[in-house]
Design a binder for these strands. Structure first.
Length: 423
RNA sequence: GGAGAGAUGGCAGAGUGGUCGAAUGCGGCGGUCUUGAAAACCGUUGUACCCGCGAGGGUACCGGGGGUUCGAAUCCCUCUCUCUCCGCCA
């Protein structure tokens, strides 16, 4: 959510920048400005009436002490009308505030200056690309390999739960565990603190990171207890810092967490959902950083380098793209995707998304730091990235490492799996 | 799940209807003293919003929401959470 003050201080700039995300904000901004003027006027009136009532109440107390009951009773009568006025003003004030809030949440985050123009994925900017020459020419897609070596059972998952909930078996299960441990260990080496958060969150947390109110349909909801299954560790981990004021010297806060992720993925179909490409439940190691606004873009680059180092160590062919305005998420100011190439599917698979949200989440979270110089509480910047999501990494490993003898396990994983071939 | 107790500022902890945004202690910050540090002493120390160029003024907030009252941290209702005991349980 864009902070109200920021928005009103630079209306024209906001409207211009949101055009990069193909969002026309002019009507909403105009409406918000109107409502805000009304809000200020209403609060001023309400405060004045309150002050008046407080004054009278003090006098009544004083008169009672003096035993001047008649005078006190006389004053009491005056308060009836004032109280009614206050109640009415308070009611309009809260109505106005709700209206402003409802409009503010409609505005996507402002894209960073460097975000390229564009409609969709085809307009993303390729930042750098690894070597894909070494990728074997042809081979089986991972869903065939999974069956051949009996390591991932999609049918069985269908029976137990439904599509998109695979069962990992034998070396397939061990490979999951190995990847999780490897990713966590690498994150810890890079200075991230490991946490295991809850896998269900309440409504406040969903709102804090921006899943609620309008991406409700993407999350599984437990009605009896009013809880949501997390779609990513970003939600519980970032919410560690909800309603928090940090010391400036405590920035950055760098966290990593492994969690399963649950996504309803309503509306997906076709080749996108084949095999491991898009699941309802999958595993991911996430990195989350709370950073000083002056350093958040530097931090974003470091996080990208960290995620990139993982695909390098796994020796997977990859590229990094900077998302264009049309392909970016609602809450992000700048996003890099890391994609690995699968020759068997002949396509790029997104395995990581690293974003800077600037103050967009922090504003909702009320996550601030105390500025040493001004002594003011200012909004932090929040960032997060996958490091990494497992399913497509597994898909790429299976597809790109297939040999006549079986699937070759990447060297860095062997200490974790204790086997070097899946056959 | 049943019974009881509780929730106050960064922390501890007083406050049971009026001058309480809240005693006191600790912590933090600034200063005096000191070669330096500690101790001691003095001062200062919550958040948000509104008005104002500013100085400054106003309003709200004592777990959340609602109520009683001229006036609520204090009384009532309700929700949430914590603790103790009992039950159940990996």
């Amino acid at each position: 959510m864009i902070p109200l003050k920021y928005l009103l201080d630079r209306k024209q700039d906001v409207i211009e920048r949101l055009k990069v995300k193909h969002f026309d904000a002019s009507e909403i901004v105009r409406h918000i400005e109107e409502l805000n003027n009304l809000r200020r006027k209403t609060q001023a009136e309400s405060d004045a009436k309150q002050a008046e009532l407080n004054q009278i109440s003090k006098e009544i107390g004083y008169l009672f002490k003096q035993g001047n009951k008649p005078k006190a009773d006389e004053l009491k009568h005056q308060t009836t009308a004032i109280k009614q006025q206050i109640q009415d003003l308070q009611q309009s004030l809260s109505d106005i505030e709700v209206k402003i809030e409802n409009l503010l949440v409609l505005l996507p985050n402002l894209p960073h200056q460097s975000v390229p123009e564009g409609k969709g994925a085809e307009d993303n900017l390729i930042v750098r690309q690894g070597d894909i020459a070494a990728v074997p020419n042809k081979g089986l897609p991972h869903w065939d390999l999974a069956k051949k070596y009996d390591i991932i059972d999609f049918e069985l998952g269908n029976k137990i739960t439904g599509s998109g909930f695979p069962v990992y078996k034998g070396k397939g299960a061990k490979l999951q565990r190995a990847l999780i441990s490897f990713f966590l260990d690498e994150a810890i080496k890079a200075g991230f603190k490991e946490v295991i958060p809850p896998f269900l969150v309440n409504e406040e947390s969903g709102f804090g990171t921006g899943q609620l109110p309008d991406k409700e349909g993407q999350m599984y909801f437990v009605q009896n207890d009013n809880l949501y299954l997390i779609p990513t560790a970003e939600v519980p981990v970032t919410n560690i810092f909800r309603d928090t004021i940090l010391d400036e010297k405590d920035l950055p806060q760098k966290y990593t967490a492994y969690t399963p992720c649950f996504r309803r993925e309503a509306g997906s179909y076709g080749k996108d959902v084949r095999g491991l490409n898009r699941l309802h439940q999958f595993d991911k190691v996430e990195i989350v950083v709370i950073e000083h606004p002056n350093r958040s873009y530097e931090q974003l680059e470091q996080m990208l380098v960290h995620a990139e180092s993982l695909v390098q160590k796994l020796q997977l062919p990859y590229r990094i793209v900077k998302l264009c305005g049309g392909d970016m998420s609602f809450a992000s100011a700048l996003t890099y995707d890391i994609e690995v190439f699968s020759m068997a599917q002949n396509r790029w698979l997104e395995v990581s998304s690293v974003s800077n949200f600037e103050t967009f989440q922090a504003n909702r979270l009320k996550l601030r730091y105390r500025d040493t110089e001004s002594k003011k509480n200012l909004l932090c910047h929040t960032l997060n990235g996958s490091a990494l999501a497992l399913p497509r990494i597994v898909a790429a490993i299976l597809e790109n490492n297939q040999t006549d003898r079986g699937i070759k396990v990447p060297d860095v994983l062997v200490p974790y799996t204790n086997f070097d071939i899946i056959n």
